[in-house]
Design a protein around this nucleic acid. Structure first.
Lengths: 126, 126
DNA sequence: GACAGATATATCGGAGTCAGATATATTGAC
DNA sequence: GTCAATATATCTGACTCCGATATATCTGTC
């Protein structure tokens, strides 16, 4: 089975943005969603239903690595467990993957742009 | 119900390319698929399973208009019905729609590019 | 001290988009 | 006559993303 890839960046732009954010340094989930929302003026919404399955998938693929942090509250009362945060960072494999994805994304966009600008493989008519 | 749009150009890039091709002038289905394949060096494949449902949908939305052509073969034998081609062209509404879609697409891509270039809403750290 | 709202993680079902397989008929080349 | 290319079209499944829902902790206000 040859298995041609599915029209390249059919692979979510959201995933690409997520990886890119992690490319700037480690982050935990909630912070990522806030940052993406802020950085896109609320246009790109990395909601929990998208974000966490995505992070799981990327972790399983070995592109990102995760570690738990227990945030101690200021007035730490004894019985409290403390809020938990899961920090994610790009693995070496993930870094390489990201670079390839960015290049592929840009190439694909350039291709689409050629069609938008009119012409795109126009049989040159006088 | 507020009904927020779904992360804007979640709306297929394929549809955008198809509309853009028709923006250059009327075409029939098969020619469109060949042109897109050629103009993208085989990367974007507008296969029948994607193309025809899309054309139907656009027609139903009133964005494109269709007319049948019967291609007379050179040595037209009597019994033959002749090959049929369905030509599509952009409607006025479709033209306006296309312009809007292109603008939205470019805005969205610019937004994504900001994240790829690193920074994207980075809390400016020293 | 009670309560609301923000923080923080996670799952599930459904809707929309695209790929691949399949089907049918005509035409042109060998 | 046979085969590949032309030309249309449908259907099923995979994958992505959205919206709703759930649980728990922390912070600010009254």
């Amino acid at each position: 089975m040859v298995s041609r890839e599915p029209n390249p960046p059919s692979q979510s732009a959201v995933e690409l943005v997520l990886l890119s954010v992690l490319g700037d340094g480690p982050q935990y989930g909630y912070a990522i969603s806030k940052r993406v929302a802020a950085g896109s003026e609320g246009v790109i919404r990395l909601t929990p239903g998208v974000l966490y399955p995505l992070l799981r998938s990327l972790e399983k693929q070995g592109l990102i690595l995760a570690t738990w942090e227990t945030v101690k509250s200021e007035r730490a009362e004894e019985g409290t467990a403390g809020r938990k945060r899961k920090w994610y960072r790009l693995s070496a494999k993930g870094r390489k993957h990201l670079d390839q994805r960015i290049a592929a994304h840009r190439a694909h966009q350039a291709m689409i742009e050629r069609f938008l600008s009119g012409g795109g493989a126009r049989a040159e008519e006088a």
